[in-house]
C-alpha cells in the first residue's frame, strides 16, 4: 500500500514536470533539453538548505525557483532572438553543465554519493511525515500547478504563445513583444520544474545526480510529446506512463539494468513513431501542418 502511494506521489511530481514542460514545448514550440537540470536545481536547493541549515523548508523552494528563473533568463537573453535551434543548443549545454556541477561540486552536493537525510517539510507545525500526508501535500501542489498552467494556457497569454509557435513574424507584426512571451514561458517552466524538484527531495529524503541528467531531460521531453504536446491531459498521460512503465517491465522479471535499457529503447522508438506518424501524441489535438509546396 505504501508502495502504491509512493508511485502515486511520483506520478504527481512527474506530472508537474510534464505539465510545465508542456507550456514551453507544446504551447510555445520551444524545445529544451534542460528540464531535468531545473528539476535537479530545485532538488539540490531543498536538500542543501534542509541538511546544512535550519532554515524553514520553503527557503529551499524559493532558492531553487529564484536560481531557475535567473538561469532561464540568461539562456533566453542569449538565444531567443536567434533561431529556436540555438535555444535548444544552449539548453543542452546548460543541462550538461548543471549535471557536472551536481557530480563534481563535492563540497555542496556530495557528488555521486548524493545527499541523504533531507528533512520532511514542516508546515507551521504539521510535519509531512507519512506517505499519505506526503500524498496530500504533493497532490495539492500538483493540482495548483496544473490550474496555474491551464489558466495561462487558455488566456490571451497562452493564445500569443501558440501564435508565436505558428508564426512568430506575424505575431510581432501584431505588436506582441515575442521575446517577453518566450522568456516568460521559459522562466515559468523552469521555475515549476524546480518546484517539482524540491517536492521530490523532501519526499525521497535522498537525492543523487542520477535523476537529473540529460537522459532524464530527454525522457521528460519524450513523455510530453508522446502524451500529447499542447493538450491539457496529454502531459498527465505521459507522466503516468513514465512512472508506471518501469513497474510493468519489472513484472516481466527482467534484471533492472536490462529493464532500464529496454524502457529507453521503447521511449526512443515511440518518440520517432509518434513524431512521424502521429505528431499530436496519444491524446493531443495539435497536429502539425504539412507544407504542400515541395
Amino acid at each position: 500500500m505504501d508502495y502504491l502511494l509512493h508511485l502515486l506521489i511520483l506520478t504527481f511530481i512527474f506530472s508537474i514536470l510534464t505539465v510545465s514542460l508542456n507550456l514551453l514545448v507544446g504551447h510555445t514550440g520551444l524545445f529544451t533539453i534542460a528540464h531535468a537540470a531545473f528539476f535537479g536545481l530545485g532538488a539540490y536547493s531543498s536538500a542543501i538548505v534542509g541538511t546544512k541549515s535550519n532554515a524553514p523548508f520553503y527557503i529551499g523552494f524559493v532558492l531553487g525557483i529564484v536560481l531557475s528563473i535567473v538561469f532561464s533568463y540568461i539562456i533566453s537573453l542569449a538565444t531567443l532572438r536567434l533561431h529556436e535551434d540555438y535555444f535548444a543548443i544552449a539548453t543542452f549545454g546548460f543541462q550538461m553543465i548543471l549535471f557536472a556541477v551536481f557530480q563534481n561540486w563535492i563540497a555542496m552536493t556530495n557528488g555521486p554519493i548524493g545527499i541523504a537525510g533531507v528533512p520532511k517539510p514542516n508546515i507551521m507545525g504539521w510535519v509531512v511525515q507519512s506517505h499519505f500526508e506526503s500524498l496530500v501535500f504533493i497532490g495539492v501542489c500538483t493540482i495548483a500547478c496544473w490550474i496555474f498552467i491551464n489558466r495561462l494556457a487558455v488566456s490571451a497569454f497562452g493564445q500569443v504563445l501558440r501564435a508565436i509557435r505558428e508564426d512568430e513574424i506575424y505575431t510581432q507584426a501584431l505588436g506582441k513583444n515575442c521575446f517577453r512571451y518566450k522568456s516568460s514561458a521559459s522562466a515559468i517552466s523552469g521555475a515549476m520544474a524546480s518546484l517539482a524538484g524540491s517536492l521530490y527531495a523532501h519526499h525521497m529524503t535522498y537525492i543523487n545526480p542520477a535523476r537529473f541528467s540529460v537522459t532524464d531531460s530527454i525522457l521528460i521531453l519524450s513523455m510530453v510529446i508522446i502524451g500529447g504536446a499542447g493538450s491539457r491531459l496529454g502531459p498527465i498521460v505521459g507522466a503516468i506512463i513514465l512512472v508506471t512503465l518501469p513497474e510493468a517491465l519489472r513484472f516481466l522479471g527482467l534484471p533492472s539494468n536490462v529493464a532500464a535499457n529496454l524502457r529507453q529503447i521503447l521511449y526512443g522508438s515511440a518518440l520517432i513513431v509518434c513524431i512521424i506518424w502521429r505528431p499530436q501524441g496519444l491524446i493531443g489535438k495539435f497536429s502539425f501542418r504539412k507544407d504542400e509546396n515541395s
Binding site: H83, D85, S222, G268, L271, K290
Partner: peptide, 30 residues
C-alpha cells in the same frame, strides 16, 4: 526526409535524433 517538408521540421528532426540517440545508446548498453 520524411519530415523535411513539414513546418515543424526543426522540432521534429531534433526529436527524431533524440529517439535515435536513446535507441543507439541503450542498444549498446544492452
Amino acid at each position: 526526409e520524411k519530415v523535411s517538408k513539414r513546418e515543424d521540421f526543426s522540432q521534429a528532426a531534433l526529436l527524431i535524433s533524440l529517439g535515435m540517440l536513446f535507441i543507439l545508446q541503450n542498444g549498446i548498453s544492452l
